[in-house]
Structure formats: structure tokens, C-alpha cells
């Protein structure tokens, strides 16, 4: 099924890569300025959601299968917790980022740790947003559109 809104399709095709790039921009700023995994995750998810709105849910599901969302949700949490375990294994305490890199004076370990953790957050938030969207959008309406 092809949507008749040509302008929308063209514009969104231009916008979606930008949104994704902006999402990553927000994400990598999260470490020292407003931003971070939460916000970036929502932005990233909005790219997929926009795609789904314009090209239809089925197309979107081909681009980003629902199963990915489920795995991604889990993966994000896993990444987050893994950072904690990695720092444990490197001799620190749970989630002690300082041990992740020997350069303590510049706090390199802290940077690495935060970014790694934020990646986990990003993954989860993105996938959760998409999963929620799929769940709502995939629901068969109780009243069909014709009956309104």
C-alpha cells in the first residue's frame, strides 16, 4: 500500500537520517552537557516512529523487527549491568568507573564508564519506545474507522 502523501514521504526521507544523527549527538553530549541516553533514545525511536507513520507499520516492522525491540530492551540493561561487572572484575567496586582506565588524573575511566552506561540506556530506551509504539499501533481497534 502506498501512501498518497508524496511530500511527507520525501521530507521524512530527508529528516530521518538527520534525526538519527541528532540522536547520537545528544547521546554523546550526555556525559558533560544536557543530553544522554534517555533523551537520545527517545530521539532515535522517534525516527523509527516517523518512518512507521509515513510508510506504514508493516514497512517499519521490516526495518526494525519487533523482536529486535525485545532483544534491545534486554541488551541495554545487560550493557549497563555489564559495566558494573567489568569494573568489579577490574578490581574496583560495582560501577566504579575510575578503574576502567589507568589514567586517573583526567578521569578517563569515568568518561568511558558513563558513555558505556549511556549506550545501554540508549539501547533500552530506544527499543522500549519502539516496542510501546508497536504495541499501540499494532492493536486492532475495538471500533473500526468506518464506524466513527
Amino acid at each position: 500500500m502506498m501512501s498518497p502523501h508524496v511530500i511527507l514521504r520525501v521530507v521524512s526521507k530527508v529528516l530521518i537520517p538527520l534525526i538519527i544523527v541528532y540522536g547520537f549527538y545528544v547521546h554523546f553530549h550526555g556525559e558533560y552537557s544536557p543530553g544522554g541516553g534517555f533523551q537520545a533514545g527517545v530521539v532515535l525511536a522517534s525516527a523509527i516512529i516517523l518512518y512507521a507513520l509515513i510508510f506504514g507499520l508493516d514497512e517499519a516492522r521490516k526495518v526494525f523487527p519487533p523482536y529486535w525491540a525485545r532483544v534491545g530492551m534486554a541488551l541495554g540493561g545487560f550493557i549497563y549491568a555489564s559495566v558494573g561487572f567489568v569494573s568489579l572484575m577490574m578490581g574496583g567496586k560495582f560501577l566504579e568507573y575510575a578503574v576502567l582506565h589507568p589514567d586517573v588524573s583526567h578521569g578517563t575511566g569515568q568518561h568511558i564508564g558513563i558513555i558505556a552506561v549511556e549506550i545501554g540506556v540508549l539501547t533500552t530506551v530506544t527499543c522500549v519506545m519502539i516496542a510501546i509504539f508497536y504495541a499501540f499501533a499494532g492493536r486492532t481497534p475495538e471500533i473500526s474507522d468506518e464506524d466513527w
Partner: peptide
Amino acid sequence: AHAPVLLVAIPLILSAPAAA
């Protein structure tokens, strides 16, 4: 030495692969 946190963290991290 890490018992208090591992007690919480291990089930938490295992939940991720369980969901997948």
C-alpha cells in the same frame, strides 16, 4: 566483599538474557 551488590545485580543482569 561485593556480596551486597552482587545479590541485586546478578538477578538484574540475568533478566536481560532471559527476556531475549
